[in-house]
């Protein structure tokens, strides 16, 4: 058991890093706009497709392969800049103040549309673009070779976590978002442009999802269904950590990834269901998640 401890921790952290990018975007959008965005997984897969396509283009054009690293970031930014404002201003804005069921149905419809659009544009075969992974090589830890790229993902996830904390606590935009989260009407009365805050928050959420997808491409094939697979785990993370909780998302990502990794190591038959068993257990004890708090609601 002990000799497995190091690989278990390494795998849990590497898995948690990828889940965290998606979950933190999902939870940010929920905390600011009070919308559970089912289409969030599509932004993940679109980010992955764009990053893979851009990387393949770079290689086929004979450009320096190290450019594939900034290309990952650029792809996510591109997806966010195009889809973030577009989706928020057309569909999401229409759902503000409406019943949660309407919001979920609208975003679910958007998810289905985006999934089909991806099939139309990128086809149904898997796309592979593993240049960044190959460039970084491997490191032996506890007798097992890990991709240095996996280690980089852990560092990047930490950077996003601390970056988000810095944004919320120490920047003007962060304080505006906190004010809007606290009370939209009072924020409006005080002259805060809440519409703009919503667009920015949603675009940032899209960016984080697309970044997760882009960063996943060097180690996974990109194929239809990728978004749904990741989205389900992100929902589990959001439920365990508490919707709207950034630090909660970080801890919950480790819990979800840890449950999955433990299952793969010791009870492979349960590897798919393990994260959701943990989610169920947490929700039975703390219905608002580990870090969530019960809120009063106007009727």
């Amino acid at each position: 058991m002990l000799d497995m401890a190091l690989p278990l921790i390494m795998d849990a952290l590497a898995n948690a890093a990828l889940i965290f990018f998606v979950a933190v975007g999902l939870t940010l959008v929920f905390s600011v706009q009070r919308i559970l965005n089912v289409a969030h997984g599509s932004f993940y897969s679109i980010g992955a497709y764009i990053a893979a396509s851009m990387g393949l283009w770079l290689i086929s054009a004979g450009l320096n392969p190290w450019l594939s690293f900034p290309a990952l970031l650029l792809s996510a930014a591109l997806v966010a800049m195009v889809l973030g404002p577009l989706v928020e201003r057309t569909l999401i804005r229409w759902t503000y103040g409406r019943h949660e069921a309407i919001q979920i149905l609208v975003t679910f419809g958007l998810f289905l549309i985006l999934e089909d659009l991806q099939r139309l544009v990128f086809g149904v075969r898997s796309i592979y673009q593993d240049t960044p992974m190959a460039l970084l090589g491997v490191t032996e830890i506890g007798g097992i070779f890990y991709l240095n790229y996996q280690l980089l993902l852990i560092v990047l996830a930490l950077a996003v976590l601390f970056g988000m904390r810095f944004l919320i606590k120490h920047t003007r935009l962060g304080r505006l978002l906190v004010a809007v989260v606290a009370d939209r009407e009072v924020s409006l009365a005080m002259g805060i442009n809440t519409d703009r805050a919503f667009v920015l928050a949603f675009t940032l959420g899209v960016f984080l999802a697309a970044l997760g997808g882009a960063l996943a491409t060097p180690t996974t094939g990109v194929a239809p269904g990728l978004g749904a697979e990741t989205m389900v785990l992100a929902f589990a993370v959001a439920a365990i950590g508490g919707l709207g909780q950034i630090e909660g998302a970080a801890v919950a990502s480790i819990i979800v990834a840890g449950a999955k990794v433990l299952a793969v190591y010791y009870a492979p038959a349960f590897d798919t269901v393990a994260p959701f068993l943990v989610m169920l257990a947490v929700l039975l004890v703390r219905p608002n998640g580990l870090f969530g708090t019960a809120t009063t609601r106007k009727i």
Binding site: N15, A216, T220
Partner: peptide, 22 residues
């Protein structure tokens, strides 16, 4: 020594690779 059954269509096998190596 190990018997793994990842889901059909899974995108990541990194944990399975670690488990098999271990």
């Amino acid at each position: 020594v190990a018997e793994l059954f990842p889901s059909l269509g899974a995108s990541s096998y990194q944990t399975e690779v670690s488990r098999l190596s271990a």
